[in-house]
Design a protein around this nucleic acid. Structure first.
Lengths: 114, 114
DNA sequence: ATTTCGTTAAACCAAATGGTTGAATGAAAA
DNA sequence: TTTTCATTCAACCATTTGGTTTAACGAAAT
């Protein structure tokens, strides 16, 4: 059994994903690792506020923080996303659908709006 | 283009999924349609409070309400779950993973804890 | 040794959230 | 036609949330 099971918390993860700014942080980290001040260029809020969002994502293990000199390197942890993925997949009857409906539902060619 | 695209709102859906009671409502509806008072037997909160949660899920189109006499039949709308599924799948690099890792991440044989 | 840079901590605030109780509505049963 | 049953509405409340500003801290650069 994976150790992640015992650490990754459904409650914290779903709560973390509820905020638009926090989802945007994950989107940006998907493109590559970053830092607080670097990320802050993409947000209209203070870096202190952004720091709080990052801490929430960190507590949910959706991102990891690695100290490098005076910087903190922020990286997306895709494993934690898998927890909510699993929950949703189960209740949306993901695996019981036809391949057509599947690829229609999850179309990774289509760009995300908003 | 599907009409659902224009109706289903990522913000509302993720916000709706953030609450444990609301996720539990969806879990119960996954087992079968129900009504407010019927569902309420499974919750320690008032039926009025539960009614508010149901309204939030309804606004996010995660469930539908159908009037049948004096009852309101509540049904899970799996299509809306697909929206968050889609978002998460994209950023977790779902499709780029090996089949082994995939089936490990989404294991629908394993029962959901909590 | 000082200053600058990136980050974290603390105090504070308005608005949103999740709960309560009591009253109102509308269909079904008596 | 009352009464009961399922649901909704409204007022209220405590806590949480997401933001602000000011201050502190530790590593890097001057």
């Amino acid at each position: 059994m994976s150790n992640a099971e015992s650490i990754l918390n459904e409650d914290k993860i779903f709560a973390a994903l509820a905020d638009k700014n926090r989802r945007k942080i994950l989107e940006l980290l998907h493109a590559g690792d970053s830092t607080l001040l670097e990320l802050n260029k993409s947000f209209p809020i203070s870096f202190q506020a952004l720091g709080k969002h990052i801490k929430i994502l960190e507590n949910a293990h959706l991102l990891t923080k690695e100290t490098q000199g005076k910087y903190r390197k922020l990286s997306l942890n895709r494993e934690a996303l898998g927890v909510s993925m699993k929950w949703i997949a189960y209740f949306s009857d993901f695996w019981n659908q036809s391949f057509d409906k599947l690829s229609q539902q999850i179309d990774h060619n289509e760009k995300h709006d908003q």
